[in-house]
C-alpha cells in the first residue's frame, strides 16, 4: 500500500459496530450449545492447574490446541472473514498457535508446577477469560452477543496468556506472540469502532506482558 503512513485506523475499518456484534450473535446461535462445552473445558484447565496431576500439561496443551484451531477455523475463517478479509490471513496463525500449544503440552512445556504470586495472577487471567461473556450484559449488549472462551478469539487469547504466565518455561517466547498480537489487533479494532470494550483486550495484553516479565525476573523463585 502506497503512502501507508497517510492512512488512519478508520481507513481500515470495513464494518459497523452493529454488524460486528451481530456477527457474534449469529455465531453463538449457530454453535449453541457448544459454548457450554468450551466453558467446561476452561474449568477443566483451571482444575488441572490447581491439582497438578501428572501429565496435566499434556492435557492442557491438547485442549487449548484444539480450541485455538477451532476458533481459527470456525470464527475467523468461516465467520469473521465474511466482513473482514484480513481475517483470512490471521486464521492460519490460530492454527499454528494450536499446533504449538499441543506440541508444548506434549513436551512438558505447559506444566504448571510453580505456585508463586505471578503464577496465581496468571490463573486469575485465565479466570477472567472464562468470565468474559459477562462483558456483554455489563456493557448493555444482549447475552447472545457474548464472547465465549473457546468460541471467540479474545477470551481464548486472554485465558491462554494467563495459562502461559502460570506455566512459565522455555516455550513462552513461541507461544505468546500470537495471542498478544491478536489482543492488540482486537483492541485497536474496537477502539476504532468507538467501543469502550477496547480497553479490555488491551489491558489484558498489557497485564500478561507485565506478568510474563515478572515471571522471568531472577527474584521470582519457585515456591
Amino acid at each position: 500500500m502506497s503512502e501507508w503512513w497517510t492512512y488512519r485506523l478508520e481507513s481500515f475499518l470495513l464494518f459497523s459496530p452493529r454488524v460486528y456484534w451481530r456477527m457474534f450473535e449469529l455465531h453463538n446461535a449457530a454453535l449453541w450449545p457448544l459454548q457450554l462445552a468450551t466453558l467446561a473445558s476452561g474449568v477443566v484447565i483451571v482444575l488441572l492447574v490447581l491439582r497438578r496431576a501428572p501429565g496435566h500439561g499434556t492435557w492442557i496443551g491438547l485442549i487449548l490446541g484444539v480450541l485455538w484451531a477451532c476458533v481459527g477455523w470456525s470464527f475467523l475463517w468461516n465467520r469473521y472473514a465474511g466482513i473482514n478479509w484480513a481475517a483470512l490471513y490471521v486464521a492460519p496463525a490460530f492454527g499454528l498457535q494450536g499446533l504449538l500449544l499441543a506440541a508444548a503440552g506434549a513436551s512438558g512445556g505447559l506444566a504448571c508446577d510453580r505456585r508463586d504470586v505471578t503464577g496465581r495472577l496468571g490463573l486469575l487471567l485465565v479466570a477472567s477469560g472464562l468470565a468474559y461473556p459477562l462483558l456483554a450484559p455489563l456493557l448493555g449488549r444482549p447475552w447472545i452477543s457474548a464472547e465465549v472462551f473457546g468460541v471467540a478469539p479474545d477470551p481464548t487469547a486472554i485465558a491462554t496468556l494467563g495459562l502461559l504466565v502460570a506455566a512459565g518455561g522455555r516455550w513462552q517466547p513461541l507461544l505468546c506472540p500470537i495471542p498478544l498480537s491478536w489482543l492488540l489487533l482486537s483492541g485497536l479494532t474496537l477502539r476504532t469502532m468507538g467501543e469502550g470494550q477496547a480497553l479490555v483486550p488491551l489491558a489484558a495484553a498489557g497485564t500478561a506482558v507485565a506478568l510474563l516479565i515478572l515471571r522471568r525476573a531472577p527474584s521470582s523463585t519457585p515456591a
Binding site: L13, S16, R22
Partner: peptide, 12 residues
Amino acid sequence: WITFNVGDDAAL
C-alpha cells in the same frame, strides 16, 4: 463502503 458489508447476515 462499510454500510453494505454485512456478511451473510440475512436480516441485514
